[in-house]
Amino acid sequence: MKQGVIPDDLTRPFWEAANEERLVIQNCRDCDRLQHPPAPVCGKCGSDAALEWKQMSGRGRIYHYGVVHDCPIRLLQDDQPFNCAVINLDEDPGIQMYSHLPGTPVDEVPVGAAVELVFETAANGQKVPEWRVVGDS
């Protein structure tokens, strides 16, 4: 079970969208550049004036993965071992998200495979973006 999430000012739009089963990523309109994790200012131009939240398609690919056997998070320790993958978004492969790849057997992860967005519910009811394999590597 994932820990609950208490949205803060910086990430509230992300988590509110997740509760609507949408994935939004911070974007600088002036630079036409996504950034994740979000920040108070654009990492390229340094301005906060043109920051917005942009909806993503919910498609990506697996960059690589590890199998977690010794997890520091108490609530996840009963689930060990589990996959933990890095997902690159199709809109911009430089933007990453983590995933437990629900439905993929442990340590049988197809690196490079296509994935699509799904949502899980965390300990306090907050919905959390996850990813499911939909194609071959």
Binding site: Q3, G4, V5, P7, T11, F82, Y98, S99
Partner: peptide, 28 residues
């Protein structure tokens, strides 16, 4: 904790240990 703030949650929810990032780079 049972719940954590939204910003660290973007990384921490998936339970990656400290060595994880390096392990990913090493795997690649």
């Amino acid at each position: 904790d049972d719940a954590i703030p939204g910003t660290p949650a973007l990384r921490s929810l998936w339970g990656a240990p400290a060595c994880y990032g390096t392990a990913i780079q090493f795997a690649e």
